[in-house]
């Protein structure tokens, strides 16, 4: 079972590494931001599997921390970058 968990974790980590290409390339800020959201979700999944693999339930708290703060970045982007009248983009 432990070997299988390691394979899952490695697979998800490779997913993150693959997604870096979109952060690098992504033409707009929104593209890069949504890739970061995907990384956050993948990180949560990795933490859940790690919690089962290491048998350490406090790791769930790390996952919840990522979880409740994920929305902050999006609201930050939308509200901070909000256009005002007559502003040049």
């Amino acid at each position: 079972m432990d070997g299988f968990f390691i394979i899952v974790i490695v697979f998800l980590l490779l997913n993150i590494a693959l997604g870096l290409f979109r952060v690098w390339r992504g033409p707009t800020v929104a593209d890069r931001l949504l890739t970061t959201q995907l990384f956050g979700t993948t990180g949560m999944a990795i933490l859940l599997v790690l919690a089962g693999y290491l048998k350490d339930l406090t790791l769930l708290n790390v996952a919840i921390t990522f979880n409740v703060l994920a929305i902050l970045l999006v609201i930050g982007l939308v509200q901070v970058w909000k256009k005002k009248k007559g502003e040049t983009p």
Partner: peptide
């Protein structure tokens, strides 16, 4: 822009590394 968003990915990798080091 690339730097800023790569920094978020860096933070994620670092958090996972701290978990692996046992410093929750």
């Amino acid at each position: 822009t690339q730097t800023v968003f790569l920094f978020f990915a860096f933070g994620l990798a670092l958090a996972l590394a701290w978990v692996r080091l046992g410093a929750v």
